[in-house]
């Protein structure tokens, strides 16, 4: 080996006990073709600087915890290869639009508080007893919502969304896509309840269809499409509410 090439990492550091704000720290890591940004951060943590903090878990793009801004783009660091960002230095920052707890760790309280607001569970008019068996579903019915059920709550879409960055009250892409996932589920009867939440100003209307959420989504959930469809749904319901007599609603 001998002359193994290396690449620079420019990592955003923030230690709340001593730093007034985030600053940069540079590390040199081996540039290996099979290494991701997450591998490089683990190399830093294990070999160079044990004080560096970041979240990660599965290393295979399914847990959604290693999201960071890499060269300004929200990415899952476990799926972002160093060679694709050569020659570097690679800028690694905490996910945009969220408050920073320490180094690359963001505060996800706001997101965790928003998710349950859209009631992301199956709502039934009448709950069927366990003895009556399961709620059956055809493959076509599964297909209708499957795409929206692929969300891993990695929050990349929130980091990409300027509307969320400017107006933290905006309920955000993933939450609306998740609402759509349950609305489209043939077993669910909760569309009206979710619409009541999303028809509010901080629901779907803040979205100006930048489309970045869909572009950065590692699971191809298409939150931007879900939001526009929700607007149409809300508009249809509102028009019907005006046109139809009360009983017919």
């Amino acid at each position: 080996m001998g002359s193994e090439s290396s690449i620079g990492l420019r990592v955003s550091r923030y230690r709340p006990e001593s730093d007034p704000g985030p600053g940069w720290q540079e590390y040199d890591v081996p540039l290996r073709t099979e290494w991701t940004v997450l591998d490089a951060l683990n190399h830093v943590k294990n070999e160079l600087d044990p004080t560096l903090s970041f979240r990660w878990s599965c290393r295979m793009g399914i847990c959604g915890s290693c999201g960071m801004n890499v060269d300004g783009e929200p990415r899952l660091t476990c799926g972002t290869f160093l060679v694709d960002h050569a020659p570097g230095p690679i800028r690694v920052e905490p996910l945009a639009n969220f408050h920073v707890v320490r180094d690359l760790v963001i505060d996800m309280t706001d997101f965790m508080e928003k998710l349950p607001r859209v009631k992301p569970w199956i709502i039934r008019d009448e709950e069927q007893s366990v003895d009556d068996g399961e709620y059956l579903q055809t493959p076509e019915e599964l297909d209708a919502y499957k795409q929206f059920s692929m969300c891993i709550n990695c929050m990349l879409c929130y980091a990409a969304c300027p509307v969320y960055g400017l107006d933290p009250d905006f309920i955000g892409p993933a939450a609306i896509a998740l609402a759509e996932r349950y609305d489209l589920d043939s077993r669910d009867r909760g569309a009206r309840e979710r619409l009541d939440v999303l028809i509010e100003h901080e629901g779907v209307w803040g979205c100006t269809f930048v489309g970045e959420c869909t572009r950065v989504c590692p699971k191809h959930v298409d939150p931007a499409g879900a939001i526009q469809r929700y607007k149409l749904k809300a508009a249809k319901q509102s028009v019907m509410a005006v046109l139809l007599p009360r009983g017919a609603r």
Partner: peptide
């Protein structure tokens, strides 16, 4: 019942 909001109508226009 659906809540009445102005936004859906403005958005349609």
């Amino acid at each position: 019942m659906t809540k009445r909001r102005l936004e859906p109508f403005v958005w349609l226009m």
